[in-house]
Structures are given as C-alpha cells and as structure tokens.
Amino acid sequence: MKNMKKLIIFLLVSAFFIAMIPQKASASISVSAQSAILMEQGSGRVLYEKNADKPMRIASITKIMTAILAIESGKMDEMVKVSEKAVHAEGSSIYLIPGEKIKLEDLVYGLMLRSGNDAAVAIAEHVGGSLDGFVYLMNQKAEEIGMTNTHFANPHGLDDHENHLSSAYDMALLTRYAMNNSKYKKISGTKVYKSPHPEENWDRKWTNKNRLLTELYDYTTGGKTGFTKRAKRTLVTTATKGKLDLIAVTLNGPDDWNDHIQMYETGYKTYSLVEVLSEGTIKEIDDEFYKKKVYVDHSFDYPVTSKEKNKFRIEYKMKKPNREWEDNIPDIVGQAIVYFNEKPVKTMPIYYKQGEEKDKQSFFELFRSLFTAMIGVKTDG
C-alpha cells in the first residue's frame, strides 16, 4: 500500500512538472498534409514544420519558379508566339491558340491564376530558348536561393519526370524570395484578370484558383495551387495580419485549405513582431571615433512569443580606424550581429555618416588624440 501511495504521488508530481514545460506553438497544430511549414516572411523564422525537408512531388506550385524567372527576365512587355508544343501540354490550360501572339505578362497571369500548363511551356520557350534551357535556369535560381532539396525537370510540375521534386521548406524559401518582387506580389494576389483574345471581340477572363484568396481567408495575399495524381494536393499561400507576413506550404494535403487557415490562426495568436534593432544612429556604440556617427539603414524585426522577447543580444563588430582612412573613411565600418537564443539570426552592415562630423579637427588630429589617450599622454604635455 505504501509503495502504491508513493507511486501515485510520483506520477502526480511528474505530471505537474511535465505540464509546466513550455510547449512549442506547433504542438497545437495538426495538419492533414504529409509535409507542411509555416514561415515568417521578413526573418525567415520557421514557426511550424512537419517533414519540411522531405523531397516530394510538388505539382503546379512549381509555377512560382516559372513566374519569378519570367518576371526577372525583363521581357514582360514582349510578345510571345505560342508553339504547337505549348498548346498540346497536358492538364490545366488557358486554351492558347497555335501561332497566336500574346504578351509575356499575360502568360504569367494565366500561369498563376489558372495554372495553365500551356502558358508554362510558352513562357519557358520564350525566356529560356527551349524547355531544357529554361529548366537549367530554374535549377540555377534554386541553387542561388538555397533550395538544397529541390530539382526541377519541367516548368509546370506535371508528373513526366521522376526527379522533379522539392520540399515544403524549399518552396517557402522560394516564395519568400518571390514576394520581395513587387510584380510577382501583385500577380500572385490578383483575384481576376482579363487578357485580350486574339480571335474574338471579348477578353479572356481568368479567376484565381486560390480559394483562400478569393473566398476563404480574408488575410490571404497570394499563393499558388497544385494537383497531380501522384503529387496529390499541394498549396502555397501567403497572408498578412497587422505587421506579420506569413508563408504556408503543404504537400500532399487532402484538407489543405483548412491546414493553411489553422497554421495562420495559430501563428497570429502565438507570435508578434518585435523591433530588435532600430533604424538610425546606433547609440550603444560610444567609441570616441564612432560615437554618434554610425548607423544602420533599416530596422530589424523578429517574430517571437510573449516569453521570448528577452532572448536577444546584439554584438557590434567595428573596423579599427587607421591612417589610410584620413581622406576616405569607408561607407561600411562594421556589422551588427543579432543573436536569438545565442544563435545568430541576422547580420546587418553598419554605415558611417560621411560629411556629417561636427568636430572640426582633422582625421589625423582625432587619430593622434586617440593614440595619445591610449598611452596616457595628455595633449598639453
């Protein structure tokens, strides 16, 4: 009996302490998808993940890469002649006509809103010179962005290659990159678009397939849908509430609309942005040479829970002044390293305020005064 009482007391105490352990926000999220991620756009911090690094089939969310490459090509105003190969692409279509000429910008809208595979091939042929040439550009850009679990084999995401794969994390990285482009951001967030029809008096009208954007979730700002028989449902969306910009990705998610809403709602309830480093003069640097003369050109915000706000540390690494600077002080004289939980999360350049010195002494005089101060000799003897 005594042993039984001790066991009960032990279990109760254990349960109490387990309950006191802080839980991650992701503990309250349960998604249908085989792979998922929730990322804060500005910092890239991962707020929730499930098998996020697993390479999987991605279907038409592939077209995010196709779209950003088209936009960055600088050819958006060019007219594209549609080939027979483009017209006969399988699956979803914007019903292009062989030989028609259509603006590249219109093709990108058709690609993103209606997931046109014909548009994807037409874009690839025009921007890359050929499908193979465009696929090379896709993989080159993926490497540049840091998509280490990705290999593209086509511009549309159809299951015509075994090695056309990516991960939820990589697709979030790609979306984060793309959302920094204002043209992509506009196209991705467009609900309805009209494009001139080459053979009719009426325009083609394309309504976005992203139901989170068009009807289900008011905070949605963009994204891309996807589906093939082998990949199943894939979805990338973006959302903004207050100052918090989030990116959600699900791969093979039978209930993906609700998966994304649940991730967003949990993220907005759990996290808020805090300003870790303010734009402008860095007051913490009181070195005689740099005091009131160095600054950062933009602020840095980071998403945290209410219990994480005191876990930041900022380290300032400054270049040592030297005689070579007398006539030309560098614009960048150091860096600010932001640590969160003792891990570096951001490095920012520190700039020198050129031509704003109020002290009339020359650089050499200031350098000499610093030197004499260091060896303990006063300027008056």
Results as ranks from 00 to 15, higher is better:
S182Q: 15
A59Y: 02
A168L: 02
Y302D: 08
K224P: 00
L113E: 06
K50E: 12
L137Y: 12
T234G: 01
G44N: 09
G44D: 08
Y295V: 02
Y264K: 03
A119H: 03
D77F: 01
Y295C: 11
L165H: 12
K101D: 04
E279M: 10
G44C: 08
M179T: 11
K343D: 08
G74R: 10
Y184G: 09
K378N: 14
H151C: 06
V135P: 05
P196R: 07
P55E: 07
L235G: 02
A25V: 15
I37F: 07
I332D: 00
I332R: 12
Q140F: 01
P344Q: 06
F152G: 09
A120D: 00
L158K: 04
A142K: 11
E90V: 08
E365W: 02
M39D: 08
M348H: 02
A25G: 15
S369H: 14
Q361W: 00
S182W: 10
L158A: 04
K320C: 00
E356K: 15
Y217G: 07
E308K: 07
D77I: 02
N163A: 14
K6E: 14
I375P: 09
T62S: 14
P55I: 04
D218G: 07
A120I: 03
V338Q: 08
T214V: 13
D297K: 14
